[in-house]
Nucleic acid binder design. Structure first.
Lengths: 267, 267
DNA sequence: ACCCTTATATTGTGATCACATATTTAGGCG
DNA sequence: CGCCTAAATATGTGATCACAATATAAGGGT
């Protein structure tokens, strides 16, 4: 069953009705600590963010505040803040109707984002290069191993997640880097698209650029790492763009209301 | 008088009391169109954003929701969304107390942001280069003229604003560029700091790198433009960092509560 | 049968309230 | 007189309500 991110149906009683009844004092604890120390807005933000970055929500799909609120069984408030943040990060776009949906992709924008990824990630790798120690190298090798397994098993969700982990692991070697958040912003914008490109690519181009990157790190060869990263980013994505983008444009024009039967993990 | 961004004092009746009294029907119009078509949250966001980017709010200064709400004579809601967005753009930082303040600067972070600016802006300029036509060149020359005037008159606010306009004018030549928002994000993070560096620099280094950039555009010399932009970004900022950053660290440690007598334009 | 108008429902935005937590201030005890 | 504790205040977070604008559905007129 599709979880449906926009309007639900019945909008049952959310959870607790503490608002309009201040005289009710017998209820011992309205919120039993809930385990996590983070806010609801942050949790929803992270959840949606992962969904978007891993491409679990398709391009052009629309989200509504109340729909998400019922989906997460919370009020509209934390959803609003999460959406607002994702909009500011260009992961979602707000149409002139104030309706919110996954940003659509154009060929120009795609080409631009790709260039931004190459620029930012190669530079970040160069700046992090001297901070990559032996421990981190082994961690990278382990991630690459998992990446290979996911690729063989065609577990695309896992592949996307581990691929991001691989890249992040390199850039985060340099502590407190402002590049990381910038890079993640670009990932967020490309996510819904990359996921779909992935299923088309993996079968045609099994060349694993990550191996070249690892080799470059072992040899302490900066230039080779730069080349490997740029190749990894560009390979298989840049040439396949136009077809998928045209699909998106067609899709966004026709199916706007419902029809969002994306396979999201239940959870 | 300092406008004071955190807690006000009296918290008078905000403006209209429409919420709790649904039976009140004699009030003709709760909101008389207000002129703008944008939301309050957006207006506050843009306002705060400009204040931060132009350095009108000092590093380490703390902001509160209710304080800003009374300052703008609105409810807490739009302020929350504006703050949340600025936090996500790293212009503000949320401490573990949930208190929000202007992000503090460390030497590492500063160096990182500077590198990000150079990387992003030079690349954006290269990508926009072929789109700069004669009209845009004359516009750039005009902005540079205003820049020179502002520099002579020591109008630092205006200089910051026009400097941003100059750079943006170059990068925006290429339409729908994803680089622009990334660059603005970095500006936002450096803003509070640059403003203060500016007053120290302008007297020592009157060399105007923008003239070199304009000359490069006229000669259609890509490399020269790249060099000019990198020089413009690095000049006068990179070497002055440590002193001001230490000042900030000291300042943020001691004066945390009040003492935010920043000269913000009345408006 | 088609298009335009009207009625209903959905949605975003803003306001206010309740509550938990953190900070500041006041007060008491050693 | 100083330090610790407790009351008061401030602040962030979440929930609910009201309202305007938009989209969708229904209905009627030519």
């Amino acid at each position: 069953m599709a979880p449906r991110y926009h309007q639900g149906v019945t909008q049952e009683a959310p959870r607790t009705s503490a608002g309009a009844k201040p005289e009710n004092g017998d209820e011992p604890a309205a919120r039993p600590v809930e385990g996590a120390h983070q806010t609801l807005a942050q949790k929803i933000y992270l959840d949606l963010r992962a969904d978007i970055m891993m491409g679990r929500i398709g391009p052009g799909e629309s989200l509504t505040i109340r729909g998400l609120a019922t989906h997460y069984a919370v009020s509209a408030m934390p959803v609003r803040e999460a959406l607002r943040r994702l909009i500011s990060e260009q992961a979602l776009e707000m149409q002139d109707n104030r309706r919110v949906r996954i940003a659509t992709m154009t060929m120009d924008r795609f080409e631009d984002l790709l260039a931004a990824r190459v620029t930012l990630e190669t530079e970040a790798a160069m700046r992090a290069f001297d901070f990559i120690d032996k421990d981190r190298l082994t961690l990278l090798e382990q991630i690459d191993e998992e990446l290979t397994q996911a690729s063989k098993a065609k577990e695309y969700d896992r592949w996307m997640e581990r691929n991001l982990a691989f890249h992040s692991c390199i850039y985060e070697a340099r502590p407190a880097s402002a590049f990381v958040s910038l890079i993640e912003s670009v990932w967020l914008q490309m996510g819904p698209f990359m996921r779909r490109a992935l299923v088309e690519i993996r079968n045609h181009y099994p060349v694993d650029r990550h191996i070249e990157a690892l080799q470059a790190i072992r040899n302490r060869d900066r230039l080779a790492l730069k080349i490997a990263i740029e190749a990894d980013i560009r390979d298989g994505i840049s040439h396949i763009g136009s077809q998928l983008i045209n699909d998106d444009a067609r899709n966004a024009a026709s199916g706007k209301g419902k029809g969002n039967a994306n396979g999201r993990g239940g959870r």
